[in-house]
């Protein structure tokens, strides 16, 4: 790594003709800087990054916070704690938590099956796992609704059993399972792939059965990734809008999610109220983002150590 002429020389990419044949090697006076920053473009790229970040993210973000600061505490509290809003928090968080738990279990199972076993069509399944990232949420929403409605492919078998999924809170959970599905799979999969077989061999030669090996050896190794994926799926589910509104039925107090409350307030030109609820959601997103960052740090340390 410390070689003066590293991989580029032997890697087959140095055969391109030099484009500045006349240029001399770096003269003496740049050496001091070169010791730390040989590469150019730091100032340019960093200032562009900051400018773009400020314009696209930070200005709108501060508009939201500024709007909130024009509210008195009582106004704010009234907007974020009405019974309809409270019911929406319960649904959003309950359904998101439930969906993330389902994804935790099935995401681990899917990652395990994809890494450890071979079966026909494995590559297609592996590619398909990313579908919820690629398929627009509105499409997922109407499609899941069509499946689960009384005359749908799945709904027609559930209706005689008196199970209703579409237009109920259960429908919300199903939509959120769909949107959060890839997270756990994609965080756990690489960790499972990198795991050293020797550890498992050692465990088994010391007399552990397969389940003990999984619980004591494999599970501790993948648990940071598992938790990261879970937190990501949960965070994604809380903010989700497009796939949920079609399947939820959107009945106040029963199947109305928090993002829809914001839309409802906006449609009544209650900008202050919408902003107050949005700030609550934003704070929760921030906290989750920090948790995810901390989990990823833990995962890296685990992988490095």
């Amino acid at each position: 790594m410390s070689a003066v002429f590293p991989a580029g020389q032997g890697g087959g990419r140095a055969h391109k003709p030099a484009h500045t044949p006349a240029q001399e090697p770096a003269p003496q006076h740049t050496k001091k800087r070169a010791a730390r920053r040989v590469l150019p473009g730091f100032r340019l790229t960093l200032s562009y990054t900051l400018l773009y970040l400020v314009l696209i993210v930070l200005v709108p973000l501060s508009a939201l916070l500024f709007k909130t600061s024009t509210l008195t505490w009582d106004q704010f509290w009234l907007a974020v704690s009405g019974p309809r809003v409270m019911a929406s928090y319960r649904l959003t968080f309950g359904a998101s938590l439930f969906a993330a738990l389902v994804n935790l279990v099935f995401g681990l199972l899917l990652a395990w099956v994809l890494v450890r076993y071979t079966f026909p069509g494995k590559k297609i399944i592996d590619a398909l796992v990313d579908l919820p990232f690629a398929l627009p949420t509105a499409v997922a929403g109407i499609s899941l609704t069509a499946l689960l409605a009384g005359n749908g492919w799945i709904g027609q078998y559930l209706e005689p059993m008196d199970i209703k999924l579409a237009f109920t809170p259960s429908g919300v959970v199903i939509a959120l399972i769909f949107v959060g599905l890839p997270f756990v799979v994609r965080t756990v999969q690489p960790v499972l792939e990198d795991m050293e077989k020797e550890l498992e061999e050692a465990a088994s030669s010391l007399g552990a059965d397969r389940w003990q090996t999984f619980r004591r050896v494999i599970f501790p190794t993948i648990s940071p990734a598992l938790l990261t994926g879970f937190a990501m799926a949960f965070a994604r589910a809380i903010g989700e809008y497009g796939s949920v509104i079609f399947i939820a039925g959107n009945m106040p107090m029963i199947s109305e999610i928090t993002p829809l409350i914001i839309i409802g307030k906006l449609e009544q030109y209650d900008y202050a109220g919408a902003t107050a609820v949005a700030v609550v959601m934003l704070v929760i997103s921030f906290v989750l983002l920090l948790v995810i960052n901390a989990l990823q740090g833990w995962q890296r340390r685990r992988a490095g150590g």
Binding site: P60, A63, L64, G239, Y241, P259, L266
Partner: peptide, 13 residues
């Protein structure tokens, strides 16, 4: 991690 709806609202504001 920002809900798309909140993102839209920020631009409205």
């Amino acid at each position: 991690s920002v809900s798309p709806v909140v993102a839209g609202l920020m631009y409205v504001l």
